[in-house]
């Protein structure tokens, strides 16, 4: 039975567009804050994961690539990735890296360091990204944040694509920090002691 397509089933287009725009003008990276705040606000205010369940374009993108484009091997994830300590550990690691990124932005803001026109992949590899930014367009820290935030978005997409290929299409959703965080918020909100 075919399911009815809703408007939000097309949000993957925005997710794809976001990644593409970063190659042309890094400042678009700021828009990514939306996929940071919207899920958090929904879970805090409504106490549900409708962001993951309905609106998340990234999840849809993985699903499309994996199912429609048949790029996924559809294998089960190794158990350790599904474990609580890995999911919570990855969330903690992600948050630490996020705050380091904020701190780097602060250093540029305060003048202690210069703007680095690079995108860091997998928290390690610095890729020159000066083609997507004309020096002096905006205050340096605004550009620094854009580079930093886009690094996070591209890195998580990369990880997601790798696990999409080797495991189930939306394997990323198992260890996605936003998904883990919103689930935790929902648990806290429901006041349940369920594991």
């Amino acid at each position: 039975m075919k399911k009815k397509f809703m408007w939000y089933d097309y949000l993957w287009i925005l997710s794809a567009l976001y990644l593409i725009l970063g190659f042309f003008n890094i400042l678009f990276a700021w828009l990514g804050l939306l996929c940071f705040f919207i899920p958090l606000i929904i879970s805090i205010v409504r106490g549900n994961k409708s962001y993951c369940n309905k609106y998340c374009g990234r999840g849809q993108l993985f699903s499309l690539l994996g199912n429609k484009c048949k790029l996924s091997m559809n294998k089960p994830l190794p158990n350790f990735i599904k474990s609580k300590w890995f999911r919570y550990g990855f969330l903690a690691f992600f948050m630490i890296m996020f705050f380091i990124m904020i701190f780097n932005t602060y250093l540029v803001f305060s003048g202690a360091s210069d703007l680095k026109e690079a995108v860091t992949l997998l928290w390690t590899f610095k890729v020159p990204w000066d083609f997507a930014y004309t020096a002096g367009t905006v205050t340096p820290w605004i550009a620094q944040f854009a580079f930093g935030f886009y690094s996070i978005m591209l890195t998580s997409t990369l990880l997601g694509i790798i696990t999409m290929i080797f495991f189930k299409p939306r394997a990323w959703c198992v260890y996605c920090p936003m998904g883990t965080m919103t689930q935790l918020i929902c648990k806290a909100k429901a006041g349940t002691s369920k594991e």
């Binding site: 994961k49 369940n53 999840g59 599904k82 999911r87 959703c173 998904g179 929902c186």
Partner: peptide, 10 residues
């Protein structure tokens, strides 16, 4: 084990 992602729902 469920992460409440909603793949099943869809």
């Amino acid at each position: 084990i469920c992460v409440a992602c909603g793949c099943c729902l869809k």
